[in-house]
Design a protein around this nucleic acid. Sequence first.
RNA 1: GGAGGGGUUCCCGAGCGGUCAAAGGGAGCAGACUGUAAAUCUGUCGGCUCAGCCUACGGAGGUUCGAACCCUCCCCCCUCCA
Length: 376
Amino acid sequence: MAPLNQHFRILNTDPESAARCALLSTPHGQVLTPAFMPVGTQGTVKSLTPDTVKALGAEMILCNTYHLYLRPGHQLIASLGGLHSFMNWGGPILTDSGGFQVYSLGKLRKITPEGAIFQSHIDGSRHRLTPELAIEIQEALGSDIMMCLDECTPYPATFSEAEASLSLTLSWAERSRKARADSSPQALYGIVQGGMYPDLRKRAVEAIAAMNFDGCALGGVSVGEPKALMEQIVAETTPLLPADRPHYLMGVGTPEDIVKAVDCGIDLFDCVMPTRCARHGLLFTNTEKVVIKNARYRKDNGPLDSECDCYTCRNFSRAYLRHLYVAGEILAMTLNTLHNIRYYMRLMEQIRDAIGCGQYAAFKSRFLKDRQRVET
RNA sequence: GGAGGGGUUCCCGAGCGGUCAAAGGGAGCAGACUGUAAAUCUGUCGGCUCAGCCUACGGAGGUUCGAACCCUCCCCCCUCCA
């Protein structure tokens, strides 16, 4: 394991909650947390250049082991100098292990104790993804943070299903730990599963903590369960996590989800929401839910979000953005994604500022109240 | 001038005696999206006082219990021949 004090250093903690600011150090630079990682599954944050992603304030992005393994292949990427060089992203990269694909590609996959057997969604060919192979791929890619292969427990799951799934994830975690090269500069995070059962979550945290990973992730959340249940699981599980390691809530979430989870001590987030929703025409602002294709914006000459400092908001009207979207123009995706990512980045900046000055509770309640107004 | 083919709900386009407010696209309108099989998917899509009624398949008549579908005339459009 990389020495902990070098990977994660807490800068300050909020007096009234578990929220904290920290500095995450990786071979490709540092990341201030709480941080949101834009998702770049296939080695690209869809529709944006890496320059733009960086300029928007993103310090670390997420890429996907399974997808890059299938296409173009990790060995090819390694032979071309690694993922950073291949995609021209100089900052830190976290690679998801493919565990989520074990879940999302459910119909194309079979799970055995050894690993997951996938049928490629691209050409139907069969592949066996084991914890060891997931590490090998991530080492070939050269990501800064690797994730253990896990089984993302579906919802709903009975206790015994969740328990069986958890023990598989834990055994895979142990194998991942052993598979990783001793001298590796790449961090490795374990993943806490356990479904919606607090007892299993507790057991998972204890086991993962005992394996001494560089960071602890909470997985298997926002898989279709009621929102209140997710919040409950996060609230009950986070206090059990080792305080001196980064806490990563995988696949979450909406701005509200993030603000609430930071309160529980989560440091890292990733989610397709800002990028996917942007491509589908849903744009985030603090004052209004903007579905840019709606007819009401046809003649709206105002900026998308007057509070936002992004290129889209500074230069284009809602009427133009609607036109681009409705016309199916490729620029719509770029401008929309650019804004949504900037919205998330500004949110994280505000979160870190609020923690920095010990005002997180006030920030949180004000933010949630504002968002409630937006939704209604 | 002659010979064919055709006019269907916003558009394209099926239907060719009843089960037709009329397939299927498109456009329009709205919704969903949480470790990306997603520039995707879903709903809606004549009107109303909405388990019913009204208005609709170029126009006018006719046949029939019943017509978008059959017959007659008229009006347009397209192709070929002169």
